[in-house]
Structure formats: structure tokens, C-alpha cells
Design a protein around this nucleic acid. Structure first.
Lengths: 154, 154
DNA sequence: AAGGTATAAGTCAAAATAGGTCAAAGGAGG
DNA sequence: CCTCCTTTGACCTATTTTGACTTATACCTT
């Protein structure tokens, strides 16, 4: 018995499929009309199906001319590190671990040496001073954002 | 569907691009006619997009023969950057302002385009989710760490 | 020179537009 | 009935659009 959420998922998958560049932009209200559901069900579908761990990025903008943009990342054929990171929601990352990770990314030529240095600077405890007890969580978030940005470049 | 504000922004960017000396002078009423909007929407676009953090200065004159003059600031010298961080302690930096700043650093070849993209990703609200009410402070810290790292290279 | 009028831009806040969050209610299967 | 997923709605936040009111400058008339 297919749920509405599933239908919406399939519809989005279909239009991503049809798009070149694996990116699709749509409006939440339009979609909710098309499927006769409340707008927030669209968020439900996005949150449960189009997650980073499944290889999607969802961006949005509110207000006039607002939109939802769903980007499918070419994640399947990437190496293990990247995959791991994309799936790191809620995990922590110490300064040392981050530094090691960045180092590996540089060694594997995912980042240039300079990119590595700049990222390390930003990931240092001293830069995350204000976040105190959350800093290892925040650091993980920053690294994830970094990795997603890299993946996004295709 | 992009917003009207975006269209207006693009139009202004285009004519600045075409101008030599990166200066453009136009009339608010003309623009509002061209885009079928109220005049004050032009101010909205100027205030939200052509900000100093993005490297623009807007001057104007009222009354007969009035005008809006938008100047794109020339490449800044190194001490501009220094000054920027010098008095950034405890300051806040919004996502928009950060994005404008990074854009400028890229234009000035302080950062490569890719470095800029990666930094922007890390400075996004979505990456700073956990910090919530401190996020503009944290963002400033991150940018300061970035700039200090750049300065240290030399 | 003073004052009035037309012209043009500025300010500010309300309204409109659009997406986000969260938690309660509903429903299917074990 | 218990659990998990889905559906729904009330309330929140962000961004843009609009308009009423204000201020500045130029020009014309006396």
C-alpha cells in the first residue's frame, strides 16, 4: 500500500532523473497542492528520504520567490571517507581527529595543501571558542558541510 | 520563479559589469518603471544587495536631477583586511555578510573560487545549526581564523 | 533673495509570500 | 495494544512587496 509520502518521493525522484545536472527546484506549496496534502508533509518527505546519508542536499529559501532545491550528490562511487562523513549526523569530532581527517583529504588530493591549512585554521578549538561544550559537534557539522560542498562539485 | 528583487539586482550587476570604472548612475523612478514595482523596492534591493560588505557604495541625490550612483569598490589593499579583523572582536557576522565578504576575497584573489565555495559552505547557517543564537558571533570567529591563517602565510 | 512648487529620493512598517518546526493524532502491521 | 511511520495543523521565521508619509534639491515667480 503506497503512502502519499512514497508518491511524493517517487515524483521528486522522477523529476531529478529527468533533470540534467541532478538538481531540481520546486515550490513547496505547488507540491502540496499536486498531492493534496499539507505543506509540512513535503518537509517530512524531504527529511526522511532526501537526507545527506542518502546522498542528497536540500536547500531552500523563504519569502517571495522562495523555493526548495534538491541536489543529488554523486556519492556512490566516491571513496570511503567521504561516504562516512556524509553520514555523520550528531557525531563529534575532536580537533585532533579533524586535523587528521583534513590531512588525509590533502594526501588524497581531495583538498589542496592550502585548502587544508585554511580549513584546519577554522576547525581549531581557538576558532570555536564560543561554542564551548558543543564544539566537537559543531566541528563535525563544519566538516560535513565541507565534504558536502566538495561532493557537490561533482 | 526568482523574485523581482533578484531581477533588479541582476540588472544592476549587468550594467555595472558593462560600465568601465565600475560605476553606474541611474534613476530610481526609471528602474521602478522598468521592473513595474514601487520605487522603494529599489531601496530594498540596494540595502540588501549592494552593501559595503559586498564591496559597494551607494550614493544618491534627491530633487530635480536626482540619481542613484552605485560604485563597486576597487580591489582593497591588504591593510583593509587587517583593519577588518582588527575590529572584529566580539562583532557579529550574518550569513549574507559573510557570503559577501568571501565573494570579495575571491574577487581580490585572496582566495581561489574553490576555496571561497568551501568556506561559504562552512559559514552557512545550516552548518552552524547547533550554535543557534550565537551563530553570528561564531561565524565572525571563523572568518577571523580564516583571515589570520591567510595573513600568516606571508 | 524669499517663497512656492515640482521633482526625486528616503524611511519605515504593514502586508504578502513562502518555507520550517514541532508535536499530536491516525493508521497498518507485528 | 504497541510500535513505527505517516498525516495534519497550529504556530514560527525569513524574505519580498507595497504604500503612506518624509526629506532634499532644483527651478520658477515675485
Amino acid at each position: 500500500m503506497g503512502s502519499k509520502a512514497e508518491d511524493i518521493e517517487k515524483y521528486i525522484l522522477k523529476i531529478i532523473e529527468m533533470s540534467e545536472n541532478d538538481t531540481v527546484e520546486l515550490q513547496r506549496t505547488d507540491l502540496s497542492y499536486r498531492f493534496s496534502c499539507v505543506p509540512s508533509q513535503i518537509n517530512y518527505v524531504l527529511n526522511t528520504r532526501f537526507t545527506t546519508s542518502r546522498g542528497y542536499i536540500v536547500e531552500s529559501r523563504r519569502g517571495g520567490g522562495g523555493y526548495l532545491r534538491i541536489v543529488k550528490l554523486p556519492i556512490s562511487r566516491e571513496d570511503d571517507i567521504l561516504r562516512l562523513i556524509a553520514d555523520s549526523e550528531g557525531q563529534e569530532l575532536s580537533e585532533t581527529a579533524a586535523s587528521g581527517l583534513i590531512g588525509r583529504l590533502v594526501e588524497e588530493d581531495v583538498l589542496t595543501a592550502r585548502e587544508g591549512r585554511l580549513m584546519e585554521a577554522v576547525l581549531k578549538n581557538s576558532a570555536l571558542e564560543q561554542t564551548r561544550q558543543y564544539r566537537d559537534l559543531v566541528r563535525m557539522d563544519l566538516v560535513r558541510a565541507l565534504i558536502l560542498a566538495i561532493l557537490r562539485e561533482k
